[in-house]
């Protein structure tokens, strides 16, 4: 069974390390905050100007002046701080944020990523994604392995306009976990019940499979 979105978030949460400052993108990456492992202390950054972002507010306590980068109402944890957008991106470009998790429409076996534009169709803009991927030392992409037509989104070359080049380090899809290596997507773990053959069939980019690939325990 491929992973569902919560399982993908849970798997990514295992990459969190004690003391990390972490920026989570919109969508599935936001769910990672729900699965921080016990004993691990991390601080979530939101690029619209928060360090120490907390959970959604209780009903009736929403504050229009306190939102995250996805424009959702949020809360602040004790010890949080607020800052302007230039300071926020100084944290990001200056590599003070240790981990970025974001979604993608396409990635390549060299770590290129496309996630902001479908020419002639969807133009939402890149938001902070280009700054994030150009700067973060550690970028995990969280995405479905294939599109609705069943075609691979893990490619040799992106077909869509790029967000960043040679920047993604790790990918978690609904089918498995991959490191981006000079040789291509290195399969580290399979989703429960998903075979190496299925992953091979659904990966257009170069795939590296070494020995027995363990099945993920989720």
């Amino acid at each position: 069974m491929p992973l569902d979105k919560n399982q993908m978030a849970k798997r990514i949460a295992r990459e969190l390390q004690h003391g990390y400052y972490v920026n989570l993108g919109i969508g599935i990456p936001t769910l990672v905050a729900n699965y921080v492992p016990e004993g691990i202390d991390v601080v979530f950054q939101s690029e619209n100007g928060i360090l120490g972002m907390g959970p959604f507010p209780y009903e009736g306590e929403e504050d229009a002046d306190l939102i995250n980068a996805g424009k959702q109402t949020v809360t602040l944890l004790d010890g949080a701080s607020i800052f302007d957008s230039a300071t926020s991106f100084a944290m990001i470009r200056g590599q003070h944020v240790q981990l970025t998790v974001l979604g993608a429409m396409e990635i390549t076996d060299q770590g290129d990523i496309a996630n902001w534009k479908i020419p002639g169709k969807m133009v939402k803009g890149m938001g902070g994604a280009m700054d994030l991927v150009a700067s973060a030392e550690n970028i995990i992409v969280c995405m479905l392995h294939t599109n609705k037509a069943g075609e691979s989104k893990l490619l040799k070359e992106c077909t869509l306009p790029l967000t960043g080049v040679k920047c993604v380090k790790k990918v978690v899809t609904d089918l498995g976990v991959f490191d981006i290596t000079p040789e291509g997507f290195k399969l580290l773990e399979r989703a429960p019940g998903v075979s190496v053959d299925e992953i091979k069939a659904k990966t257009e980019g170069r795939l590296v499979v070494e020995g027995e690939v363990p099945e993920m325990v989720i």
């Binding site: 230039a86 990001i92 470009r93």
Partner: peptide, 22 residues
């Protein structure tokens, strides 16, 4: 308006936008 060409649009990365204003 953008797709029909009525509106000119310059999309730039958020951090670059903030820093360019600064």
């Amino acid at each position: 308006q953008m797709l029909s060409g009525e509106l000119e649009v310059d999309l730039i990365p958020q951090g670059s936008l903030a820093e360019r204003c600064r």
